[in-house]
Design a protein around this nucleic acid. Structure first.
Lengths: 346, 346
DNA sequence: GTGAAAGCGCTAACAT
DNA sequence: ATGTTAGCGCTTTCAC
């Protein structure tokens, strides 16, 4: 009884009309609750539709209405990363208000794949395309951008074209993290960052370095580590940092993955040194995360769900016909002190 | 320069054909790389398409090909919950192998909304529909299920219709959690569970109770708490449990949200009792989570990404024409001991 | 190897 | 208030 009848044609509007004894157009009007349909006729048509198990064919409708769907595409990294899923959740909530649906696809951090996913979405005639890009060169989007499909970039600025964007105040957040640690008396501060050629990471590195420069501190320089791209690598990197002589007294990690890695390294260090009760280094991480409160981790927080919401809002405005120059929204950050960032240098 | 020209019609195949000086059908053949096109003609057509910035209209294609899209729908709870996003990620990965795209929608734990989202997806002619239901009654899906759109239920069994499903071994996992704590010498074990009318929760409660019965232990009964539905409520509930006299020596929480709440309550207790160094109760949580290793939390783990993958696989098989009775896949669980579940009763 | 005509299921425009 | 005709952009016959 399941999909055996996968080839069973679904009833069409014509059949509903026939059963109700009215014309195609009248049936259409009745089901769409358009004016100028006699109440009794309307009821008869709807009954017929129910009897047949009729369901509107959205594909045909959309073709007729101008070949544009009610779908909005999101191309991002893996939803298993809480950053992406929080953003996606914010987008979906906002779109739903306007009757739009979200299609998601994971670019696997691969520029080629990203490009082909964008293509696939455009073929599906999405109304707008939201991208958290992995690729650096978005020139390939330029043609599309000018052909009526609004683009919104999230987390990374458009590169090589003009489009709406929602960004995080990366430099500002990282600067305040640096200042926070400096204010705590730290000088030997390690910076563990992800791929430096990615704009958000670059912004965070620059912000941190700016804070150090402004304070005339250069004791952090031997502890700079960039292009650390996953949890395992971060764990290893932090372990190596802790083994240096002298070790850094504080660590700043520039995204949630790196913070996780750092926490694993610190936990192991704690375990091994249980006897001599060494004070662990201070830790501040960019991106808030679940249970950071329980772990007592100081973070540079920002509203991920708002990033999605704002991006969806920008997209919706374009869909609704808003024209004008590209806009950029910058989401602000704030330090949430929970203990790990307030440990003083031992 | 942005969406100003939102009304700019995209070039159609007819225009490409005209520019290339061939017929509509030849252009179609060339772009779809069908046989029987002279190489030079093919090149000419593709050049014309590039010049015009032509992009295939997937909506028209799908209408002609039988009004069925290459979309698969997922209706679930908020992607901000790591359980749902991990499952969604597993689904998306699997679908992508087969050229299918994932549309997601959040049911906001509302049965009415869920139903209308299912409708919306069916109108869009999704090839299959994956549901992590919030509603209890899925009778409304029965008609559809027999009309060629394969359904797969995740995490909760279909109720009132026969459909494929991917479930977690809830009872087994909860039983082993109970046994684990009993083996550690605990008798006064608190059970903190979510809405008991939801099948997964019911399974977990039953499994736990079964373990207690089998061991002839009834000291847990005063510590049973059900219908705890969010983090805050869980935190409050655990706090109340800890204030009892005598307090439970162990706690079992039946999903990730409840575990989070319990951790918050335990953290506060630790803070307040810093002086007298009280041993906190043992804790085992259902669902693994990020940083559980760092926190040292013992959990009943299961492969969330596999749940999505298997569900997508079942759906794909139906899409590909597989017929036969509904299948149910049960994902197994395993206890991961990390310390919190191995604390002995004080 | 290429083309002409038909039509997927619906809605818009124009009758009646 | 209801019906008729045309056509969205494409693929599918079926001819040439």
């Amino acid at each position: 009884m399941p999909a055996d009848d996968a080839n069973v044609r679904r009833p069409t509007l014509t059949e509903v009309a026939a059963l109700a004894g009215v014309s195609l157009k009248t049936a259409s009007r009745a089901l769409n609750r358009e004016p100028n349909v006699a109440p009794s006729t309307g009821r008869r048509v709807r009954d017929a539709a129910d009897t047949l198990g009729y369901r509107l064919n959205g594909i045909a409708r959309e073709l007729r209405r101008g070949a544009t769907s009610s779908l909005v595409g999101l191309v991002s990294g893996d939803l298993a990363n809480p950053f992406y899923s929080a953003v996606a959740s914010g987008i979906e909530r906002e779109l739903r208000q306007h009757g739009l649906l979200l299609i998601t696809a994971n670019n696997d951090e691969d520029a080629e794949l990203e490009r082909s996913l964008v293509d696939a979405f455009l073929e599906r005639r999405v109304r707008a395309l939201l991208v958290i890009p992995s690729a650096d060169d978005h020139g390939y989007l330029a043609i599309e951008g000018n052909r009526g499909v609004p683009f919104v970039f999230l987390d990374r600025p458009p590169d090589g074209l003009s489009a709406d964007a929602v960004l995080i105040d990366n430099a500002g957040g990282a600067r305040s993290a640096g200042e926070h640690l400096l204010a705590g008396g730290h000088r030997r501060i390690a910076l563990v960052s992800d791929l430096r050629h990615m704009a958000p990471q670059k912004g965070r590195i620059d912000g941190f370095v700016g804070a150090m420069r402004a304070a005339g501190n250069d004791a952090w320089e031997p502890y700079l580590r960039t292009d650390v791209h996953d949890v395992r690598h971060a764990e290893r990197t932090v372990r190596e940092l802790l083994a240096l002589d002298p070790p850094p007294t504080a660590i700043f990690t520039t995204n949630n993955r790196l913070t996780t890695g750092a926490l694993r390294a610190l936990r192991d260090q704690q375990r091994n040194q249980e006897s001599d009760r060494a004070t662990p280094p201070a830790l501040v991480g960019f991106d808030d995360f679940d249970l950071a409160d329980v772990l007592g981790i100081t973070v540079v927080a920002h509203d991920m769900s708002a990033i999605g919401r704002e991006a969806a809002r920008l997209a919706y405005e374009r869909i609704s016909g808003h024209t004008g120059p590209a806009r950029t929204i910058v989401i602000s950050t704030s330090i949430i002190a929970r203990g790990s960032g307030e440990r003083s240098p031992h």
